[in-house]
């Protein structure tokens, strides 16, 4: 890692990270505030979900309450953590990675960096670490917002271990998307493509996950989707456990995509 590049990248992103964190913190607080209202609606609330197509319900996650009753964790999972939160954090990640390498190449500023006494590996890691800091900050702000508001409103939550584990899993999940998007960023010369490729990956992954849940014949497709390993947030939150395979898959994605990204970035010509 290179200090000047790391600090400069952090300096140019701290406001974005802060805004995302603030937004997620407040949005999480707002959804937590909604929970008692949804709980008081009782069957009226669950009816809304009963009338939805099954695949939509599955996609939103946390529908365990249809059989097991509405809990705070199942509500947060369905309304926030399973889908909408993923979209928001993924938007941050892709916005960051597309500028990290491809954006520098497109803008021509990479020449300034490459002519300094730094290696390409240092450039890559200095930027990646800022992305990881962003992912951690966004995750902590979200979970922090949920827990803080739950505490204020005296909402009963599952044991805190579940929240710690979920935070850890979410950081791994988003870091996988981050390293994958960084890999794409090293491969192209335009910011637009560096945005499109990881976006296509995430959307395709999500669609595969939905299809796998639609029909028993397609069930095995789920292993191809990164969302399969993200699992159902309410299960992690309530049981404080996750299949180790999921963690290994995330670790594998991080190692492989980081390695490929590094190799590509180190070997490619940069004609600026």
């Amino acid at each position: 890692m290179n200090g000047p590049i790391f600090w400069q990248t952090l300096k140019s992103y701290w406001l974005t990270i802060l805004l995302y964190c603030g937004g997620l913190f407040l949005y999480s607080m707002f959804l937590t505030f909604i929970f008692p209202i949804a709980r008081d609606l009782g069957t009226n609330y669950t009816e809304i979900f009963n009338k939805m197509p099954e695949q939509i319900r599955n996609a939103m996650g946390g529908t365990n309450f249809l059989t097991g009753g509405l809990t705070f964790e199942s509500f947060m999972s369905m309304e926030h953590l399973r889908l909408f939160w993923v979209i928001i954090v993924t938007a941050f990640i892709i916005g960051f990675t597309s500028r990290a390498i491809a954006g520098e190449v497109e803008q021509g500023t990479i020449a300034l960096l490459l002519s300094q006494p730094v290696t390409r590996t240092q450039i890559f890691f200095s930027k990646l670490v800022v992305g990881i800091i962003g992912v951690i900050a966004l995750t902590v702000a979200t979970i922090g917002g949920i827990l803080w508001q739950a505490y204020r409103l005296d909402i009963t939550v599952s044991p805190i271990e579940g929240y710690f584990l979920f935070t850890f899993v979410a950081i791994l999940f988003f870091t996988s998307i981050l390293t994958l998007a960084m890999m794409f960023s090293t491969m192209v010369v335009e910011r637009g493509r560096a945005t499109l490729l990881p976006l296509l990956f995430v959307i395709t992954s999500f669609v595969i996950d939905m299809f796998a849940k639609l029909n028993a014949d397609w069930e095995d497709l789920k292993w191809l989707s990164i969302f399969q390993y993200y699992s159902s947030p309410d299960e992690i939150l309530t049981t404080a456990s996750i299949d180790n395979l999921n963690l290994w898959v995330f670790a594998g994605i991080i190692v492989v995509t980081t390695t490929v990204g590094l190799v590509v970035f180190n070997r490619r010509d940069i004609s600026v």
Binding site: Q107, G108, T109, A111, L112, V272
Partner: peptide, 10 residues
């Protein structure tokens, strides 16, 4: 020290 023909700066 290096100066490119068209310097691209931040």
């Amino acid at each position: 020290g290096y100066v490119s023909s068209e310097p691209f700066l931040y």
